[in-house]
Each structure stands twice: as structure tokens, then as C-alpha cells.
Design a protein around this nucleic acid. Sequence first.
RNA 1: GCGGUUGUAGUCUAGUUUGGUUAGGACUUCAGCUUCCCAAGCUGAUAACCCGGGUUCAAAUCCCGGCAACCGCACCA
Length: 587
Amino acid sequence: MINKKEPDKFLVLNELARRRGFFWPSFEIYGGIGGFVTYGPLGKKLKLNIESKLRDIFVNKIGIFEIESSIITPGKVFESSGHVNHFKEPMVECFNCNERFRADHLINEKLGISLIDIEQKSLAEIAEVIKKNKIECPECNHNFKEPTQFLTMFKTTIGPYSGAIGYGRPEAAQSIFVEFNRLYNMAREKLPFGVIQIGHALRNEISPRQGLIRLREFTIADLEFFFDPEVADCSMINEVKNEILPILLAEKREKGLEDTINITVREILDKKIVCSEWQLFFMVMAKKLLLSIGVPIEKQRFIEKLPWEKAHYATQCFDQEVYVTRWGWIEVSGHAYRTDFDLNCHMQASGADFRVFKELEKPIVKKQLTVKPKMAIIGPEFKDKAAELVESLLKIPAEEIVESLEKKGYYLVGDKKISSNHVEIIQQKNIIRGKRFIPHVVEPSFGCDRLFYVALEYALTTKDDRNILSFPITIAPIQIGVFPLVNKDGLNKKSKRIAAFLRTEGLLVEFDDTGSIGRRYARADEAGIPLCITVDYTTLDNDTVTIRDRDLWDQIRVPLCDLSFLLSDYFKEKIKFKDFGDFIKSK
RNA sequence: GCGGUUGUAGUCUAGUUUGGUUAGGACUUCAGCUUCCCAAGCUGAUAACCCGGGUUCAAAUCCCGGCAACCGCACCA
């Protein structure tokens, strides 16, 4: 096992995927373009099945809302969220050789200014730094043109005549945040609640590689979970207390160590390793999701991001990683504690109020002293200075004014004397029924194309030089193959009838009568079909068929009349293949 | 974006060094025959030189440019 070199499953899978129609690079007839893929018939089904796993866990079982919003987004949204500032890199181009360089890297190299500091600078400031310090092209020592920004978001204009800028969303989260008020309303104005969106996102990567792992257009599943930071307990955490998570902590990573610890949820809570219970809960769900699509726990881990690796919005962030043969550990989901960053940004930029009202158990009654200016007297007396005076007056605590009035008979605002004639002193009962605050957010975010890839990689096995995709039965793109043993004596007709019947029962069935029976099994294995039904001469005698298991290559004979409920239970994972009956002895 | 390697049917590939008849093979696919359980066999069919330009009587082959893929670097917020 140790000496055995792992085969590069990436190459095998890419070849298989093209040939059998799981996925392939898009636009090949025009030479192809990096970062875009087309999912074929089998791939699309598999992808839908994986997405419905996600739905099942988060939407159906936990009750997260699912919404769908547009990909094209007005520029303001991403300006407010900070993306326009963070999704760009300053570039400079040489006048002489037209070579392009990252301006921030050049400045960092030549002057030793940290990348984080440079990031704060505007383009004009960067241009100035380059001019002042006479930074020249490292290739030919000529001057640079004015620096420009390379934006990794896709930019467009909205409408034919307007210059309104729009961006292709680089993530689906912002279109949840901007709808917060309506969604909160639909949650009956109660926290906590969550909203998920599964859809396409666009990132104009400089060099997308690695097939499905890094695309320019990809499917993202962003879940935003809103909660009250003062009532941050997760109501479902007890159900998962004994679950184990493999975690690689930031403190270990900083020392260059790779030792993952397997630790129970209970212990994580005790040691306060993850700062939000809800985040921890979603990490457990993410682990379960990956298990359900066939990735064993020992090939999963959660790594804590180091401070400089974190996104601009996150305070604590864990990446869920899966081990793949070609690249080692790759990220499949990110779990970020975004606090109130995003809602706050949009609130300030748009003027919308995203604060929620929290009622106190007992309203607080406060006696409050208020000084109310009598404008009828102040106005005529101070004329054009009146407005300024009143403004200053209202900023001063009422007690201070009252005290001064009682002691001295007047109160000085600047050089103006205010006497008790000018104001009315009111003793008010103020009832505070609650307070307003901006909810906090934890965000699990899944790359669906990566889930798809790892599902394929972990499904791939070989037997007698044959490729088999041993998908978990609930995500298999096709459920049943129906074959006549040979193509004569009415076996073909009979099997077509059985296939049609199973389809009416709601099963995904493929009928195949070409080539030999062995070839059809091989084809079915490569498409990952879990069960194959074969109609033979015994079927004509007594209405029984054989069912073959993809992974065992064993067969069991069952009566036609039992087929429907056996298969139905099987795909609901209520029974196993061996529960169908006795294995037929192979010759 | 930089450096290296590469680009021939659906897939894998021979041919490229040294330009030359109809680009060869295997698997797949399709049709027919055959076939009582794991890619069997027989017959036939479909199907390719990444794109553009140049050199030449003649280019898959040589040259230039582009595109794409892979590996390394950088990037992946």
C-alpha cells in the first residue's frame, strides 16, 4: 500500500468523462477557451443529484430558505460589499516592451512595502510611488505606462444606452444580503434563519487550470445564516455532539505542521476552537454531505485559515478540503464567520435599515429629563443665530442645563445666556421595549463543480482493467439498466416492457440491447448504474429476472411482481442488495 | 502573465528527425450475422492532422503568429 504509487485519477476521469458524456471543455470547435465546461447528459444528472443532496441536508432537513437571484448585478452592490476593491490587482505595462507586471509586487520587491499596505493605495498613489522611486521595467529598464487595474470580476454595462455598470457576481452571497429585509419578513421576523442560493458565479481568473477545480463560470452554493450574536447557541448542536471532525488548526499551520486532529464536536466547544456554534454545526453538515457523495472521512479535513489568507469579510474561516490524487488537498467548501460585515456595508451604502428589533423580556422604564426649546421666544430673540443655538443646546445633557438653571438662573451656550424662559423642562417616562441590532452571519459556501469532481474521483475504481464508477446509490445518474440476455426469441420485447414499467414507477432506466451482455454490463459499470436487470429464458417461463450488482458482480433472481417495491426500497436505502434474495451461483 | 512540454477520428495512438501516392492501427460507436451472463467472434460502415499565415511543384511534417491542454512559477481575495 505504501509503496504503491497512486494512479492519476484526474487523467483517467477526464478521458472517461469526455467519452461517456459527464463533462468536457466548452467551445471546442472554436479552439476552446479555458475555464468553461459543458456538463453532458450523465454529468448533468449527477450534478443535479449532488445538488439535491445539498438541498436535502440544508433546505429540507434544517429548513433553510432557497432563493434564486440574477447573476448580473448592479455595480453598486459590489462596490458596497468591498468586492470591487478586493477583486482587483494593480498592473503596469512597460512603454517599450509592453511587458505587464503586478504593480503591487514590483513595489513590494523594490521598496519592501508590505502587500497589505499597498492594497490600501489608490491607482494615483501607486503611480506616484512608481514615479518617485523611479521603478522601471525589470526586463528592459524603460518607464511604465499609467497603472491600471485588472479586475477579476466580469464587467458589463446594463441597458443599451446607459453607462450603468454591472458585474457578473463572483459569489451568490451578496444577492442574499441585499434582500435581507424581505427574507427576514418571510422568516416571520425571527432569528435565527438561513438562506441558500445554488447558482452560477463568474470569476475572470487570470489562468484557470485544473479542469473542474478552477472555472471562470461555476456553480456555487452560498448559505447565509443569520443569528443574534447575543443568542448565538445552535439549537441543533446537541444532535451532533459526538460527531468527529478532522481539523488542522492555524497555530499548527503557522509552524508548518500538517497534523490534523480528530476531535469531537463536544471537545471543540469546550476548547472554543470554532468561535460560532452555528458555524461548527454547518461544518458537521458539510462533513456529512461529503460522506453522502462518497468521500470517506479520512480523506476530508477542515483547515483554519491564517490571518492573511482570510477574505476581507471574515473573522474566522475554515476550509473543508478533500484529498485528490493529482493535487493533494483541495478546497470544496469554505466556512466563514462574516459577523455583520455585509449587512452593515449595504446598510450604510444604500440607506436601508437592516437592523432587527429585539424585545426585552421586561421593558426598562427610565425617567428622563428633557429640555425642550421654546422656539417662539428663542426665534425672535436670537434671530439668525437661533438654529445654531438650539442645535448646540440639544447636544447637552438635560441634567446639566437644569442644574445650571437652578443654581445660576441661566445656562451659557457659547456667549448666549439661556434662561428658564427659553426652555421647557419636561420630566418624561421613557419606556425601552427593546433594541435594534444587525444580525451576525455564518456562511458555508460550497463549490458544486468541485463536489462533482470529488464524487467522480471517489467513485472511480477498477476491476479487471475495467473502469467502474461506484457512486453512492442515491447520486447515481442512472438507476437501473434493463437488458435482454440475447437479442432474439422475444427477450427483447419482454425487456422493453419491463423497462417501460419501471419508468412509470419513477425510476431512471436505461434500456440497452446492443453488443453482448458482457459489453452492456461493462458500459453500465462505466456509467455507474448500480443495478442491472437481465431478462433471460427463465423470465419467459416463470416471470422472474436476474438483478446484478455493480460493485459485487453477483446476481439475485427475483419475481417480476416484487421488482417495484424492492427497487423502490433499495433506492431509498431501506434495504440492501443482498436482501433481495440468494446469490445465483456463478458457473 | 512567465518558463518548459504538447496538440492526428468519440478515445488512445503510428507517422514529424529526413516534406512526396489514398494519414496506419487499436478500442469505441453504428448496421448485419452470431451469442443462455461480464468489453467473445465474423462481415461491413462512420470518423481525424488545433487555427491562421509563410516557405515549397508539394506541408500532419519546416518557419512565424495565435489558441488550447499539461507541468513548474505567480495568482486563487
